[in-house]
Write a protein that binds this DNA or RNA. Structure first.
Length: 496
RNA sequence: GGGCCGUUAGCUCAAUUAGGCAGAGCACCUGACUCUUAAUCAGUAGGUUGAAGGUUCGAUUCCUUCACGGCCCA
C-alpha cells in the first residue's frame, strides 16, 4: 500500500488476478518431450521437412520478451541452452494470448509447437500452445548487464546462475573435472571410499580444526582437516588403492585462495613411491587440462601455463639456493638461517624460537621467496623430516623425506609422499610434535594411538597424495578467486 | 589483524576541478505495433544515497564510528 510502485507489489497484484481467473500458478503436470539442445540438434541434423513437421514440448524460464501487439518473441532457457519462441494470437488463441500477456520475465512456461526459421534465419519454436508452469514473484536483474555485484553473486548464487551463462558453464566444468578424476582413478583400480568428517582427533595436516560436540556420545568431535590417517588405515586393511574426493575444513583465514571448507582428493597406492605419484600426477593433470581447459597448454590470468611435456623436479634445498639465494652453508646453521629470513622481511608470527627448527625456517623462506616464482608446473622434492611428520625418510639422507609438493602459478596444488609405515618412527614423530606443542607450536597434532596401532599390524609400502580440487578448478577455468569455483562460498551474514 | 577501494531505483551506472532541487539505460506500469533479438515509438511511476552521529544555512559529496563486500599484505 505504502509502496504502490514497488515491482514486487505489482507482481503480487498480477498474481492475484491470475489466481482469480482460475490460472494455476504452480502446476506439476507439464510433460517435456525435448530439451532445447535436443531440438537444436534435430533441426540442424535432420532434413528440414522432418524437423518442421515434428511437434516439440519444451519448458523453461522466460529470459526476454519482445511484444508486437498480437504476437511476440520470447527467449527462454532450460538446462541445455536458450531458444527463441514465436507466439501468435491467431495460432495459440485469444485466451492463451491474454494469459501470455500477464506473464513476466522469470516465469517458467511450457510450450508445444513446431520449428521454423525466422527471416533472419534463426530456428525458433512456433508455439501452438503455451501454459504457465511456475510464477516468479521477484524480478530478475537487467538482461544486458546481468548481475555483476560480487557480493550478491556469491550470496545469491542462484541469481548468478540464472543470469550469467559463463558461471553456469564454469560450474558444469568443475563437476566434469571431479568426474574425470574419478574415472581416471577408477580406471587404475582405485576404490572410492568415504571416511569420517567428524573425527575425535584432527590429524593428517598442520591446521586449526573446527570443533563440535556430540550430545549422546558426550564428546568433542573435530571436523577433519584431512582424511589421511583414515585412508591409510584402509590401506592397512587391505584396500591397496583407495581415494576420497570430499570436503576438509580448516578454521583459518578466508582469502582468494582459502575457503574454510574445501574439496580435496586424497589417494593412496600400495607398492608405489612418491616418484610413481609424480608421474601419475603429470598424466592425470595433462588429461584433465585436455578435457576441461581444452588443451594441455592454456592461459591462466594472462600467463601461459604449459602442462605438456614432463615437469620440472627440483629439490627443496636446491630451490632455496638457486631461487631464494640462500647460501647452502646456512642450511645447517639455524641462527644464520633465521637472520637471513628476517633480513628478507619474513615474519614468524608468535611461534617461539624453540619450536622453529631449521626445516620450518626453510619452508618459511620457501613460501615467501620461491613459491611465488614457480609458475610452470614444478615438483619440489625432499622436504625436511621436521615439516613432514607422516613421510618416509629418504634412504640416502634420513633428515629429508621422500616427499614432493606440486606448484603451479605460484601456488601449492598437490602434496604427496612415500608414506612412513614404521610405527616406532611414526610414534617418535608424533611425540616430537607434542614437544613442540608445549614449546608453543600453534597447531599441534595430537598423538593418534589407534593410527600407530594400525601401523603396528603392518602397512605395505605406500605412496599417497592430496590434491586441492578448488585450486585445480581455478587453474583450469582461469578463475582468480576460489569463491568463483565454490557454489556457495562462506560470507558473513547481513542484517537483512 | 593492517592498507587501499567500494556500498546511490529491481539491475547496471551517473551526479560537473571545490557541498547547492539525486539522474540515465534496462526492468516495471499505461497505450501503439503479427519476424523481433540490448526491438521500436509515446507516456507514467519508481530513492530514508549501507547504518548512526558530527560540521554546515544546506551533505550522495567533508569528518568520525560501525556493518557488509572487493583487492593487496600479514
Amino acid at each position: 500500500m505504502s509502496k504502490k510502485n514497488d515491482v514486487i507489489e505489482k507482481r503480487k497484484e498480477k498474481i492475484q488476478t491470475l489466481k482469480e481467473s482460475g490460472i494455476e500458478l504452480f502446476p506439476n503436470d507439464y510433460k517435456v518431450s525435448h530439451t532445447v539442445k535436443d531440438i537444436k540438434d534435430l533441426v540442424e541434423n535432420e532434413s528440414a521437412e522432418i524437423a518442421e513437421d515434428a511437434s516439440y514440448s519444451v519448458a523453461g524460464r522466460i529470459m526476454a520478451v519482445n511484444r508486437f501487439g498480437k504476437s511476440a518473441f520470447i527467449r527462454f532457457n532450460d538446462r541445455s541452452g536458450q531458444l527463441q519462441a514465436y507466439i501468435r494470437t491467431d495460432i495459440v488463441g485469444d485466451d492463451t494470448y491474454t494469459l501470455f500477456k500477464k506473464l513476466d520475465i522469470g516465469d517458467f512456461v511450457g510450450m508445444t509447437g513446431t520449428m521454423f526459421k525466422t527471416k533472419t534465419g534463426e530456428w525458433s519454436l512456433l508455439a501452438n500452445s503455451l501454459q504457465l508452469i511456475s510464477k516468479a514473484t521477484r524480478p530478475l536483474p537487467e538482461k544486458f548487464h546481468g548481475l555483476k555485484d560480487p557480493e550478491k553473486r556469491y550470496r545469491q548464487r542462484y541469481l548468478d546462475l540464472i543470469m550469467n551463462a559463463d558461471v553456469r558453464e564454469l560450474f558444469i566444468k568443475r563437476s566434469q573435472l571431479v568426474q574425470a578424476i574419478r574415472m581416471f582413478l577408477l580406471g587404475r583400480d582405485f576404490l572410492e571410499v568415504e571416511t569420517p568428517m567428524m573425527q575425535p582427533l584432527p590429524g593428517g595436516a598442520d591446521a586449526k580444526p573446527f570443533k563440535t560436540y556430540h550430545n549422546s556420545l558426550s564428546m568433542d568431535l573435530f571436523l577433519r582437516i584431512a582424511p589421511e590417517l583414515y585412508l591409510k588405515r584402509l590401506v592397512t586393511g587391505g584396500f591397496e588403492r583407495v581415494f576420497e574426493i570430499n570436503r576438509s575444513f580448516r578454521n583459518e583465514g578466508i582469502s582468494t585462495q582459502h575457503n574454510p571448507e574445501f574439496t580435496m582428493l586424497e589417494f593412496y597406492q600400495a607398492y608405489a613411491t612418491y616418484e610413481d605419484l609424480m608421474n601419475l600426477t603429470e598424466e592425470l593433470f595433462q588429461s584433465l587440462a585436455l578435457s576441461i581447459a581444452g588443451a594441455m597448454d592454456f592461459e591462466y590470468q594472462g600467463v601461459q601455463i604449459k602442462f605438456s611435456g614432463s615437469w620440472k623436479r627440483l629439490p627443496l634445498l636446491e630451490s632455496l639456493e638457486k631461487i631464494a639465494g640462500v647460501d647452502p652453508s646456512l642450511f645447517s646453521q639455524k641462527d644464520e638461517l633465521m637472520n637471513f629470513a628476517l633480513s628478507k622481511g619474513i615474519s614468524f608470527g608468535n611461534r617461539s624460537e624453540d619450536a622453529m627448527g631449521v626445516g620450518k625456517i626453510m619452508t618459511k623462506i620457501f613460501d615467501a621467496l620461491v613459491e611465488p616464482k614457480l609458475i610452470q608446473p614444478t615438483f619440489i622434492t625432499g622436504y625436511p623430516v621436521e615439516v613432514s611428520p607422516l613421510s618416509r625418510r629418504n634412504k640416502e639422507n634420513p633428515e629429508l623425506t621422500d616427499r614432493f609438493e606440486l606448484f603451479i602459478a605460484g601456488r601449492e596444488i598437490a602434496n604427496g609422499f612415500s608414506e612412513l609405515n614404521d610405527p616406532e618412527d611414526q610414534k617418535n614423530r608424533f611425540l616430537h610434535q607434542l614437544e613442540n606443542k608445549e614449546a608453543g607450536d600453534e597447531t599441534p597434532q595430537i598423538i593418534d594411538d589407534d593410527y600407530i596401532r594400525a601401523l603396528e599390524y603392518g602397512m605395505p609400502p605406500t605412496a599417497g597424495e592430496g590434491i586441492g580440487i578448488d585450486r585445480l578448478a581455478m587453474l583450469l577455468t582461469d578463475s582468480a578467486s576460489i569463491r568463483d569455483v565454490i557454489l556457495f562460498p562462506h560470507m558473513k551474514p547481513t542484517d537483512k
